[in-house]
Amino acid sequence: SCPVAPASRSSQEVWESFSQCFTPAVKEVVEFAKSIPGFQMLSQHDQVMLLKSGTFQVLMVRFCSLFEPKERTVTFLNGQTYSLPSLRALGMGSLLESMFDFSEKLGSLGLEQDEMALFMAVVLVSADRSGVVEVGAVEQLQENLIKALRSLITSRRPDDSTLFPKLLLRLPDLRTLNNQHSDKLLAFRID
């Protein structure tokens, strides 16, 4: 629901409002993680580590629905639609460009809401584990979630054996998006 760039505002103010709109989105990913069966069985340390390394990637999946790849536009939850050039002024052109490509590939798979949610759970527990202590527990949780995702997708499309592998191929894409863009700068005014 991020109101970006009415013409009268300076790019600094635009940058601040864009930065602000990440905060609620991150909090929603934290709540989502806590609802994943088994996630809260992990140690608190490992929950925090997975969230720190996986949240950006989950956000990228969530934001896909805002992107209209054909027209290269982004529609925020408040209904405001922006073209890619107008958002380039925010200096996030390269991230947005990658997002259009990623959302086109993910969108073409035509996942249902619950399949997308289960995929996001897999994305989170598949995130970088360098800070994780009990790797075995995380791997077990990942295996369970991948099994659940596979059975949900194959039960609905018994004759389509390509969809599930195509979906898993999005995981490295997300890892690349994360490595390329999570160091984007945000700015917050301190009063």
Binding site: F22, K52, F56, L186, F188
Partner: peptide, 25 residues
Amino acid sequence: PKTHRVMTLADHISHIITQDFARNQ
């Protein structure tokens, strides 16, 4: 003049997560 805190997206995400877990301890 207004002062600004500039941080990366990744640091901003980490900050919110740390805050959330600290609050729920």
